[in-house]
Amino acid sequence: MSVIEVQGVSRSFVVRRKVGWLGRERETVHAVRDLHFGVERGEMVGYIGPNGAGKSTTIKMLTGILVPTSGRLTVAGMVPSTQRTALARRIGVVFGQRTTLWWDLPLRDSFDLLRRIYRIPDARYRANMATFTELLDLAEILDTPVRQLSLGQRMRGDIAAALLHDPEVVYLDEPTIGLDVISKSSLRDFLRETNRERGVTILLTTHDLVDIEQLCSRVMVIDKGSLVFDGSLDGLHALGDARRTLVVDLVEPGEPIRSLGADTVKVEGPRQWLTFAADTSAAPLVADIARRYQVADLSILEPSIEDVIKQMYTRTPREG
């Protein structure tokens, strides 16, 4: 049996809009509609989509914060909407932009408080603390109040807090948002290891396709409340044909670069933008250009989720 089962789940909201001076108009907004998916134990699934597509609504329903309007939903064999507090012991949640830690407390006290709230057995608590302190490099920040932590430090604390009680399922809402490249990369290493070593099922939402690329074997795309894709990232790229962009800074301004398999889409003085298929390696292209032109700098821009989804639509017209 899947650890997360979602069958025909919808959630709509009634919003009242002001019309004129006193009038009010009721309008039903479908945040998510007819969602179907299952997640197996130990999977790490990326859940992506544009802002307002229904990602947060889905996560809120999976934690029990929000009750579905219709459909069936179970997590670890429990119905979140009716067994919220019981389920809370078996899941972990990280809200990327809001901390689940206590703002005024040192990290250590926050952890200690969670130990008591979740009634984590002493041995488990000590073992987990030792592991997380080492892997997430927490030793130096344990005695700092959360409000004084940098975004990256806070996120490390938040992730440790979400895993302290050995949850079976963890939801990570934008865990890498606002982090620098190094923090992102060490966080990804940690998540990969946690998933593998502890067998924790992880569902993560993100705006960063690199997160998905490096962590998830499976990706689900939600748009306007409906699941529009569920499969591998390669499958998504093949479907969406999103293109990556190579930004080339030449030593001197020159003619648009011509290279096989890439289109030069923009030239601005010495800087040029070339796009190429996302499923091909950048290496031959870079080698070719470096051989034939005087290059000052190179960088690669990944396609954004919005781009991928836009591309998907242009390739496969959506029915309905």
Binding site: G64, R84, T85, A88, F95, Q97, R98, T99, T100, I117
Partner: peptide, 23 residues
């Protein structure tokens, strides 16, 4: 308004108790 009430709802203790004891 700040969205931090959600945090209380994902803990295994009644949100009322957490709100009462907060700070």
């Amino acid at each position: 308004r700040m969205g931090t009430f959600d945090v209380m709802l994902v803990r295994p203790v009644s949100a009322y108790i957490q709100m009462c004891a907060d700070q």
